[in-house]
Design a protein around this nucleic acid. Structure first.
Length: 653
DNA sequence: AGATCGGAATCTTTCGAATG
DNA sequence: CATTCGAAAGATTCCGATCT
């Protein structure tokens, strides 16, 4: 057990130069305006000090604890900031950092504010002092420095006490992954190809001008103006703009994914086609360009390194999220846009994010992790054993429903194409129906790819087909559909009676503030301010077996949490499955690190390592093996994974 | 479903000038 | 001097685009 060393930098800030106004950490720290007022330290022997000469102080610490402070555990509140200062300004990268802000995020849940001020109140610690007096002052008078000393020492004291308060309640793996999240930000393992990005930016701009022709970007960018333009164009051929329900009444259906927009991409009227294409182009261009600018800007600041920033435990289920001005979890994938130049740019952005010379990225992602976890969690043995046997679940389910063969099409003959289509339907069902999706929504999903096939020639046939598939799923995987109801009932019971309720491997407990759902990994999901809404009678319409529309009045009693987000069996099941998948991901990251394979980025079911080129194959095998080995709390769960090696992110797709 | 981010629209606050 | 008005600035909300 390493001794603890809370550290806290105080730096110059002003109204215009601060961390809040959408600058990234690297931009703030590497700005010419950056200035350290001092560094506060809380020594293991209880002594505290705040020193102006941070460099001298750090040298003293290095002589006691090692050049990278490796013989001590650094405690910081928001380590992404303070540790980045250590790295960029003092060339120190401590291997063990515990961040009280991230620890609090885990312990109290995503909807609790985790500023030191709020946490001090919550945990009844000394109150945080006021820093306002130092705002905008680059040079401090002796009196101001003294006031800042009091402030800074108070801060390290609160941080130290907060740590003591929280650490007993945190799972050891979570402390490790918090450290890993900070280390990812400090590593120099992801590089940026600035020249390629500049080329991409140039091409995007010139192509945009070409494609737009007479159309002005502003008039297709603004919703109102675009709707008016498109409406006018449609009126030429006696058509009207499609509308859809919005929050306050009807709004024009002009989103990229509205079916009407998709259809208009191949509209017979060239003017309509041009307008719609221009809209997609302009809307997506801004986003691509801002990512390009961010990456170029970061490359300029860091000399070509991309600090990988992920927000730890930021979603309800504990998943990670993007942040710091760039979301690495939703980089556009080339090949998905109907517009060529957007695909080209997406590819260049991914190509521009690359491994250092002599190194490669190894990406290993879990195969159908959610479907597998769902089967395991609900005890759906038919599905679980099929996964274990390595069967093609999607085809198997489709064959079961349609009583005819399904599978990957081997050629373009009608028979083979039909097999392929059926498999695709099976895939949509397995991936979509596990969380109590209704017939109508499923029909919408099917529509996108079977609309023009012989399987459905009318809306009615589509509805009947969707009905058949949904009900076959629920019948075949009976344990899954009963699990939704069991989980909802248990959850409701826990809230109502404020009791501890067990359901299989899950444990639910409640008090007046919140409901906690403990997973087999012993991590807890927190649902704050849960309440059971009085029963409402609602008319629902659905399609019966013969495809006829029927309606019935049902009694509905909903569970709500936070600001009236509603919870029901299907959603709770989804939350639990996603949370378990998250825990499995975390375990894989930590096991890879232990095996000497540094994970430099991860995206929900995929881990990306950066290793010397000669070790790539070996690392990939090891990573796949780690994914396949489940922790002891997940005995019986069958996982599989596959890997890719590449020098940049584009090669991993 | 869960996220982030940007842009546009809308709502809220601030502040100065005009008015009674 | 209090009130009102309107513009400007700031904050919030909504929507759309992107990923898994």
């Amino acid at each position: 057990m390493l001794p603890l060393l809370p550290l806290d930098f105080e730096t110059y800030y002003s109204d215009s130069y601060n961390l809040n106004n959408s600058t990234s950490y690297q931009e703030y720290i590497l700005s010419p305006q950056f200035k350290i007022h001092g560094l506060a330290v809380y020594y293991p022997d209880g002594k505290r000090e705040f020193r102006r000469d941070a460099d001298v102080l750090l040298h003293e610490l290095q002589s006691v604890y090692g050049n990278n402070l490796e013989n001590v555990c650094i405690i910081m509140h928001n380590a992404m900031f303070d540790a980045a200062i250590l790295k960029y300004k003092f060339n120190i990268i401590p291997p063990c950092i515990h961040d009280t802000m991230l620890m609090a995020k885990y312990l109290y849940g995503v909807d609790v504010k985790v500023s030191l001020k709020e946490l001090a109140e919550r945990c009844h610690l000394p109150a945080k002092l006021d820093l306002e007096f130092s705002k905008g002052k680059r040079e401090l008078t002796a009196a101001e420095f003294a006031e800042l000393r009091t402030y800074a020492i108070n801060d390290v004291v609160i941080t130290r006490e907060l740590y003591g308060h929280i650490v007993p309640k945190i799972l050891p793996e979570e402390l490790e992954i918090i450290n890993h999240t900070v280390q990812c930000f400090l590593r120099d393992a992801v590089k940026i190809n600035k020249e390629l990005l500049q080329l991409a930016r140039h091409e995007l701009c010139t192509q945009l001008i070409n494609e737009l022709g007479e159309i002005h970007p502003e008039e297709v960018s603004s919703d109102r103006q675009f709707a008016q333009l498109l409406s006018g164009a449609l009126a030429e051929t006696n058509r009207a703009l499609a509308m859809k329900p919005g929050k306050n009444g009807m709004i024009p259906a002009i989103s990229k994914n509205d079916p009407e927009m998709q259809n208009m991409l191949s509209d017979p009227d060239p003017l309509v086609r041009e307008l719609v294409k221009a809209r997609l182009l302009v809307k997506s261009k801004a986003q691509l360009q801002s990512r390009i600018n961010y990456l170029i800007g970061t490359a300029n600041l860091t000399g070509g390194t991309l600090p990988v920033f992920l927000k730890y435990h930021h979603a309800q289920t504990g998943r990670f999220a993007g942040g710091n001005g760039l979301n690495l979890q939703n980089l556009p994938v080339p090949g998905r846009s109907p517009v060529q130049i957007l695909n080209d740019t997406a590819r260049k952005i991914r190509q521009a994010i690359h491994a250092p010379a002599g190194y490669v990225f190894v990406a290993v992602d879990a195969a159908q992790i959610e479907a597998r976890v769902l089967a395991w969690l609900t005890g759906e043995e038919t599905l679980n054993t099929a996964f274990a046997a390595g069967k093609d679940i999607y085809s198997e389910f489709a064959t079961d429903v349609f009583h005819e063969p399904a599978g990957h099409p081997r050629d373009s003959t009608p028979t083979e194409q039909r097999k392929g289509l059926l498999r695709k339907i099976g895939k949509t069902a397995i991936l979509g129906l596990g969380y109590n999706m209704g017939v109508e929504r499923f029909a919408e999903q099917l529509k996108s790819f079977i609309a023009s096939s012989e399987l459905c020639r009318s809306e009615r046939e589509l509805a009947a087909l969707a009905y058949k598939i949904v009900h076959s799923y629920r019948a075949k995987y009976n344990n899954i559909s009963t699990f939704w109801n069991r989980l909802e009932k248990a959850f409701r019971e826990s809230i109502c009676k404020q009791q501890h309720v067990r359901i299989g491997m899950l444990e639910i407990s409640s008090n007046s503030e919140a409901t906690w759902l403990q997973l087999a990994s012993r991590r807890e999901l927190i649902y704050r301010d849960c309440e059971i809404r009085p029963s409402e009678f609602q008319e629902i319409t659905f399609y019966n077996t013969s495809g006829e529309c029927e309606s019935r009045i049902i009694e509905q009693q909903s569970i709500q949490y936070r600001n009236s987000t509603s919870l029901y069996g299907g959603k709770l099941t989804e939350n639990v499955v996603q949370a378990i998948a998250r825990d499995l991901l975390v375990r894989v990251i930590l096991e890879c690190e232990k095996a000497g394979i540094p994970i430099v980025l991860h995206i929900h079911d995929e881990v990306i390592a950066c290793v010397p080129e000669v070790q790539a194959e070996q690392a990939m095998e090891k990573m796949i093996q780690i994914w396949r080995t489940v922790p002891q709390w997940a005995e019986g769960l069958v996982l599989d994974a596959e890997g890719v090696i590449g020098t940049n992110l584009a090669e991993l797709k």
